[in-house]
Design a protein around this nucleic acid. Structure first.
Lengths: 109, 109
DNA sequence: ATTATTGTTCGTAATTTTGCGAACTACGAA
DNA sequence: TTCGTAGTTCGCAAAATTACGAACAATAAT
């Protein structure tokens, strides 16, 4: 009988990859660093930190929001962005576990 | 005098983004998990874990190698891949620092 | 010499990402 | 009402990513 190979990836792997992918651009890392450490987090301030057009900044923010790492709220006429604490901690835990699970002493390396 | 805005991203941000980008695909996370925890790490074994063609596996391995997270050595007629321990720890430290630097209590969120 | 095994590389296609300017929305002020 | 401010969305282009099969290279076995 043929071995039926699971053609999917695990949910944890998908989730970790999703977080990693969102962090996979220097502009988005810069945004996250900024939001993680600054008092002010309006779109304009973020835009000022970055060497790219506002349309592009908006896109990057959207990707971070879609990945769950940040959230935004309208504070007319501005838009305030923040770290999504819950998912931030989830991401932190995913990465920590990922790196902790490396047991190179017992492996082939 | 005009304020000259730095049009580049920081080296740390570039490096972290590079690591994150390399981890930004479930196949590559699966590969890293596998290499991090298994005794065997030949190409064929890796390929067996994944639902994709060998050419694609080879490409993913190349990306991980380019990012510095793994290394490969020929063990004719097979190819053995391993975690690059040095850079793995570097990545671990980058991610840990990144997440640790979030101080949401004092920020706008 | 031919064949089989193990991976890599090539060529190609489809999709996604990145980036920009222009147009647009929403709101408050003049 | 018209204008200015703050961002988002649209439309587009260029580049990168993902994926595959076919062809290739390198070695070992027959």
């Amino acid at each position: 009988m043929d071995v039926i190979k699971n053609k999917e990836y695990g949910l944890d792997q998908e989730q970790l990859a999703r977080f990693a992918k969102a962090m996979g651009h220097p502009a988005r890392i810069t945004i996250l660093n900024y939001l993680a450490s600054m008092d002010s987090c309006y779109f304009g301030e973020i835009h000022n930190e970055l060497p790219i057009a506002k349309a592009t900044v908006s896109q990057h923010l959207k990707e971070l929001k879609d990945a769950g790492l940040i959230q935004g709220e309208i504070e007319t006429p501005k838009v305030k962005y923040c770290i999504n604490r819950e998912n931030w901690e989830k991401a932190q835990s995913y990465f920590a576990t990922f790196f902790a699970d490396c047991k190179p002493k017992t492996s082939c390396c």
